[in-house]
């Protein structure tokens, strides 16, 4: 099981995956908005989305888990 954490504090502008989706390494899984910038979040490895932990519009701190993979 691997987790995808937020690299930076900000608000989730777009969540691009749903539970059960297959993701590949380097796929964009979410876009954060922080410092008025769009910050794409990519998966580090292949897997399936086990859980979308944070919702669109939610504030997240650096290191918070956004998505759990299986």
């Amino acid at each position: 099981m691997s987790h995808i954490p937020a690299p930076i504090a900000g608000v989730i502008w777009k969540m691009l995956v749903n539970e059960g989706d297959e993701v590949h390494a380097d796929d964009e899984v979410a876009i954060l908005e922080s410092m008025k910038m769009e910050i794409p979040i990519t998966a580090e490895q292949n897997g399936f989305v086990a859980e979308v932990v944070k919702k669109q519009g939610e504030f997240v701190n650096s290191g918070d888990i956004l998505i759990k993979l299986r």
């Binding site: 690299p7 930076i8 922080s34 410092m35 910038m37 769009e38 910050i39 794409p40």
Partner: peptide, 8 residues
């Protein structure tokens, strides 16, 4: 590098 953490 704007691609990572917005280049902040």
């Amino acid at each position: 590098q704007p691609k990572v953490k917005g280049g902040v």
